[in-house]
Computed example of a mutant assay.
Amino acid sequence: MSRIDETREFIPVRIAVLTVSDTRSMAEDRSGQTLVDRLEAAGHRLAAREIVKDERDGIAAVLRRWIADPAIDVVISTGGTGLTGRDVTVEAHRDVYEKEIDAFGTVFTHVSMQKIGTSAVQSRATGGVAGGTYLFALPGSTGACRDAWDEILSLQLDYRHRPCNFVEIMPRLEEHKRRK
């Protein structure tokens, strides 16, 4: 069963938060702020924060820049995961993924179903890995950000979480690039 092993030391992770929006400013970015508040309360470090317009190339450019930054371990984006024509965050994420974390979207949908019922089918949350950096795309609502953080990411980004977590395998994300 899922649990926190208090005998293990907490390891803070450096997390960047990207809000995808054509209209929000930093002062109006409640979803991004929800993520910042939660990650900092958990003991993690905010490594970067930006707002980018709903443009696939622009989103992918920020993701690539942050993937290349050794001071960033995780990127969490919020917004642009729906079904409308302007919702291109998932496509931008997939443009940069080396590996997709398929179960992330499935688990997010399961969590969402408990909160909003079948409306959960309208969200396309996704997760993946590129350049040794974890990437997660969440819907733009504060509720979705709370649910994803509280029910999934807070646990998987905690080294003490058992039986396994994302933090403990971070050093191995790029083992395929090591010389044999």
Rank of each mutant, 00 (worst) to 15 (best):
V75W: 07
F10P: 01
R124Y: 10
V96T: 11
G82S: 12
T23I: 09
G82W: 07
A60F: 03
V20L: 06
I59F: 06
M170N: 11
R64C: 01
T19F: 04
G105W: 06
I76K: 01
K53E: 15
C164H: 14
V111Y: 01
E168V: 01
G105C: 05
V52Y: 04
T109C: 10
G128L: 07
V129T: 12
K53N: 11
G143L: 08
F104V: 11
D87M: 01
T142H: 05
L46D: 09
F136C: 03
S77K: 00
C145F: 03
F136D: 00
R65D: 10
E175V: 10
E55P: 07
G79L: 12
S31C: 04
M26D: 15
G80Y: 08
T34C: 13
K99A: 15
L155R: 05
G58E: 13
L138F: 01
I59R: 03
V107W: 04
S21I: 04
I76F: 04
A71Q: 11
S119N: 14
T106R: 13
G127D: 00
T81D: 06
M26S: 13
R45N: 11
G80L: 09
M113A: 08
A71G: 11
T34Y: 06
K177G: 02
H161L: 02
R124Q: 15
M26E: 13
R8F: 12
R172T: 07
T106W: 12
T126H: 02
A16I: 02
